[in-house]
Design a protein around this nucleic acid. Structure first.
Lengths: 176, 176
DNA sequence: ATTTACATGTAAGGGGTTACATGATTTG
DNA sequence: CAAATCATGTAACCCCTTACATGTAAAT
């Protein structure tokens, strides 16, 4: 149940239409919870029906922009969710699984794939570091910015985790 | 499309029934790809229909154990999957999202939740380390064991990532 | 007027989660 | 024989993914 809360967060930061949300997701919240416009429209409809958000007074026709804002009930729900007890989700990683499978059927071709993943993670890390430099440069920051920085740090460290693990693993795969 | 391959891997290691697979998942493959018995039975039926596995000659009635073995086609599929190009899955983490939400609605109650997660990850790390000590102790090992160890290392480092990040983050949350 | 971009949707299918149903075997 | 356990399965719901559909506005 995270997508509705991701949307509430984004709408509190700035009332938006479905497509605007989709674009904002692509370059911020979506790093940690990606969503397509189909998901977002569906969820907006649910959130409206639940009384958590409402459309800003505007033209209500198809093909027209339709912006939403968060109601007090929505803010209350988000506030409660922040403190709610929810266990970490189970790890579900296909790459680790593939290594396990390779232990049984052989590592043929896996080395190249691991290198490819290594490059992808290096690219993602570079993207995060650029954002960090742009948005969280040295001068002291607000509590809000410190929290956002912490989240970004989580992403950065996760990419570094993968890079370290892949770099350690690669020597096992010499079929090239 | 990872669950069928996880099952093929497990069945190659040892032909099993659905319930046996469920139990083996709980203490090995399931660390990186959990699955309930419902999922496993459904997937076994699909794998049989696809001609990747077949039931061992046995009594075919309800409530009776029904064991499967992997056919050559199944092994071929798994071998191909190991080398297939598949991008890393998108990160989708509710905790990072909650921090982002907390930047907007406040961190009330989040400190306790972060500490709880920290404890859960410490427990998981201890479990992994116990497995490492039990199954991958110093004496030199087969290629198969080295790969399995690499996978476990991935799990260990991932828990350490969370522990490090949570430990770094906690001081930001002083509402206790 | 046609094309392009903007904007909101519908439909189908897959996989995961939870609750429940039912048959067979073992144990007290 | 009653209860517990083993074993396989059904059903419903939710979320994510992909492909497609449709309407409006701006650009050429």
């Amino acid at each position: 149940m995270s997508l509705p809360h991701a949307i509430l967060t984004a709408l509190l930061e700035k009332p938006s239409s479905g497509l605007e949300l989709t674009r904002r997701f692509d370059r911020s919240i979506g790093y940690f919870w990606p969503a397509t416009h189909q998901q977002i429209y569906r969820e907006l409809a649910k959130l409206e029906q639940s009384g958590f958000i409402r459309p800003l007074p505007q033209q209500p026709s198809r093909g027209q922009k339709r912006e939403y804002e968060v109601l007090p009930e929505g803010r209350a729900e988000l506030t409660a969710w922040v403190a709610r007890a929810e266990d970490p989700r189970a790890v579900r990683d296909p790459l680790l699984l593939r290594l396990r499978a390779a232990a049984v059927v052989g590592t043929q071709g896996l080395g190249d794939e691991l290198e490819r993943h290594l490059r992808l993670h290096e690219r993602q890390l570079a993207e995060y570091l650029a954002i960090e430099e742009r948005d969280f440069a040295p001068p002291v920051r607000s509590a809000e910015a410190r929290l956002q920085h912490l989240v970004l740090r989580g992403g950065i460290d996760l990419e570094r985790y993968w890079i370290a693990w892949l770099t350690e693993a690669l020597p096992e795969f010499t079929d090239r």
